[in-house]
Write a protein that binds this DNA or RNA. Structure first.
Lengths: 244, 244
DNA sequence: GCTCATTGACTGACCGGTCAGTCAACGAGC
DNA sequence: GCTCGTTGACTGACCGGTCAGTCAATGAGC
């Protein structure tokens, strides 16, 4: 239980804050250094180049998502799928979660220009689509889902949620109306009703999205085992909570 | 019918080419100037700042999409919807179009940080979602679509297609298998089968996606009126072909 | 000869990265 | 338990290079 966060962690937090404050295109080493109250030189001491630092950051958040998903691997398929969908939804006031997705989206745009980043993004894609595919396969085996084209269904669910979130992020915030609980949520509900529900076999029941989101909010790491290996060094603000 | 393209048009073409070649994050005024064989100073003569220029470019391509969509406003609803969906799909070998969408995505990520860009993106969103909503409304009136929640359906269709294309773009060639004609296409087909088809009333028939795409490719401006005002100087590769 | 479009040369700001050096912690030797 | 050499973490000053933006001068058209 070291209460002093390691330098590496502080720097990762700095990248995260700087990214949400400035966006990728305007991100400088100075921004990152300022954001974690360190010197620019220190960043270069730990990471040779700016690219190295950003790749490390991507690795960091993708790995975090991997852990979170793994922690829920044993939940029942239907609950797990609804929870996965809920994962993409965030209310307008959840600035942290939203800012995180902004940061990630910025990084995604660099995929086409940077192989190392692209590699990491591909890993994240395998993680997300693979997770949905696993859930579907488990559900089919357990008899709660009909036999559908697993890959296609997974691709479609991920694309839809990702697209909704991207649109919400890029269009949002200053002009947002109060009562709008988020474009993503509307689409997530529609996804459940129009894509997931037709998948269910007779008798299988779909939990409410709100319930799943609430559960995620209360227990972001998945209740599974309390000794989840992030354990000792888990940072206080929960760190990165998703990956693309 | 001026055969000499105006400076403004040449500059817009320059922005387009430069964005394709360099992406947004690495886009410089020199890149744009070189791409349209003009001087950097001239760009500043016509547009005070780089931001002004980019906002003007966004306006330009959104307006272009507006015209293209308007040109097809009188097509039958079902065909129009399938064509709209086909609009999002491009084959892996269309590198130009893909590169442009990459740049556009980068521009979109500037939304959260730049109000003028965000404004233009919002206009584009209204255009896309509004178009689908119009098509659905027309189709319901014409009796070819069931009475559904128009806004929700439009939101979902646009989110799905946009998400699929974004994923295809950002993950690019590393994950792509040869026989894969594009992630977007898979999702577009699935969208037709799982979202659009359940909308149809008895007797209504869904045209094939390929047919719609082929029609778009042959006649990008919509057969309506041949004097479409870009007319004379339309650049060979079709120029800006979409808006987010 | 006046206006407008256009240019090349220029500037100040700022970027990523380097480098010489500071500082606290730690262990070895006595 | 004090000193001293060593090491790893960290910093401020600085460098070459690049960027957006400026400006005086030139040319084209009327």
């Amino acid at each position: 239980m070291s209460d002093a966060p390691s330098a590496a962690e502080e720097i990762m937090d700095g990248v995260y804050s700087a990214l949400r404050a400035h966006g990728y295109a305007d991100l400088t080493m100075r921004d990152i250094a300022d954001e974690c109250s360190k010197s620019k030189s220190l960043l270069h001491y730990h990471y040779d180049t700016k690219e190295d630092l950003l790749v490390a950051f991507l690795e960091y958040i993708v790995s975090d998502s991997e852990k979170r998903i793994a922690a829920r691997a044993d939940d029942p398929p239907v609950e797990r799928l609804v929870q996965f969908i809920g994962w993409f939804v965030f209310a307008p006031d959840e600035t942290d979660r939203e800012a995180f997705h902004i940061a990630l989206l910025e990084l995604r745009t660099q995929g086409p220009f940077n192989e190392r980043i692209r590699e990491e993004l591909a890993r994240s894609d395998r993680l997300l689509r693979g997770t949905v595919a696993d859930i579907l396969a488990d559900g089919i085996e357990a008899g709660v889902f009909r036999e559908v084209d697993i890959e296609e269904t997974a691709a479609m669910i991920v694309a839809t949620l990702d697209g909704a979130r991207t649109r919400q992020i890029t269009l949002a915030d200053s002009v947002r109306e109060e009562e709008d609980d988020g474009y993503t949520r509307t689409v997530a509900e529609a996804t459940l009703r129009r894509i997931v529900e037709p998948l269910l076999t007779e008798g299988a029941e779909l939990p409410a999205l709100d319930t799943a989101i609430e559960a995620l909010r209360r227990d972001p790491d998945g209740g599974a085992d309390a000794d989840a290996d992030r354990g000792a060094d888990a940072d206080p603000d929960g760190g990165a909570d998703d990956a693309e």
